[in-house]
Simulated assay, not measured.
Amino acid sequence: MDNNSGKGGSTHASWTSAMSSFMLKHLANLVAGGTRTSSGFKAVHLNACARAVNERFNSTLTGEQIKNHLKTWQRKFTKINRLRKVSAAGWDEKNFIITLDDEHYNGYIEDHKADDDYFNKPLAYYGEMLTIFRSTMATGKYAKDSSSVLGTEDVQTKNDEEENDGPATTDDRAEASSASKPKKARTQEIEDDGLIGAFTSVGDKLASAN
């Protein structure tokens, strides 16, 4: 079970796997039905989810507790996608499994025993997490607004901070900008040359046929 303190620490909820599953599926269905995730779930969505869970499991959850528990799964989702980048790791898209052969698995787990549950076995509720937090993978960035619920606007883990080399300086941005323009122009030149060559080849063949 997972205990979450409510607002002000006055209450807390005990979560079972079945309750977590129900919550994630409920919220994933909201997203699939068109609810936007870029601005997070509104209080009305969280409260509705709490009522649905309460009715199903005879519990007394609040929308704030749903929000807190969702953050727990958000952190798991962030960790899963970080572990997918472990050296030699593969990804079974159909079954949501991070794969490692015995040699790499044994070497990695020797130093990271807490990550054992994330390798070579189906990741529970990854499909629902992907639906809810998918924009996390697209941006790789997290805002620091503590009022937000979803991956693009909430938690930034220590590991993610370590992978970031720091904010770009003005010089960095200027250099990146100046470097990208010639590349784009060069790509366009290559594409134009290719089209011209293709048209010329077709013209030659037609001339030969005549």
Rank of each mutant, 00 (worst) to 15 (best):
D111Q: 07
K76S: 13
P122N: 03
Q65E: 15
E64T: 05
E110N: 04
T35R: 09
K205G: 02
D92H: 02
V31E: 03
G34R: 07
P182G: 02
D2L: 12
Q65D: 08
S201N: 11
I66F: 03
N4E: 13
G166Y: 03
G33Y: 07
A18F: 07
W15R: 06
A48K: 12
K79V: 12
D192S: 08
R51M: 10
A198M: 08
A88C: 03
T170H: 05
F41P: 07
Y142E: 15
N68Q: 08
T99Y: 01
Y126D: 04
L195W: 12
A168T: 11
D192I: 09
E161D: 05
H104P: 00
S20T: 11
D117L: 06
S39M: 08
H69R: 15
D2I: 10
E153F: 08
A185R: 08
K71R: 13
D193Y: 04
L130Q: 10
V86I: 13
N58H: 11
Y142L: 07
F57A: 12
K121M: 04
G40Q: 13
I98D: 03
Y126F: 10
H45N: 13
T170L: 13
K85M: 12
L70S: 01
A52Q: 12
A28H: 03
K184S: 10
E191P: 01
D172A: 09
E162P: 00
M23K: 09
R51Y: 10
E191R: 15
R82L: 12
N120S: 02
T60V: 07
M23D: 05
A176P: 01
A89P: 03
E175R: 12
K7L: 14
T136S: 14
A185F: 10
K67E: 04
G140D: 13
W73A: 01
N58Y: 08
V155W: 04
T78R: 15
M19D: 06
T152L: 14
A18C: 10
L61K: 05
A43Q: 09
K94N: 12
S148P: 02
D2A: 12
N106V: 00
N159W: 05
E103L: 00
C49N: 07
Y125I: 00
T187N: 15
F22I: 04
V31T: 11
I132Y: 04
L30A: 12
S147D: 12
W91N: 00
P122F: 00
W73G: 04
S14K: 14
W15D: 10
N47A: 08
D102C: 00
I196Y: 11
E64M: 05
G90L: 01
R36S: 15
Q65P: 09
T170C: 05
D145N: 15
W15E: 11
K205M: 06
P182E: 01
R36K: 15
E55V: 10
A52I: 07
G63Q: 02
G197M: 04
G34T: 06
F133V: 01
T72W: 06
S39C: 11
G6V: 06
N4L: 14
S10D: 13
K141V: 15
E153G: 15
A88V: 03
G8F: 11
A143V: 08
D101N: 08
F41H: 07
F41K: 03
G151V: 01
S59P: 07
T37K: 09
I97R: 00
G40A: 13
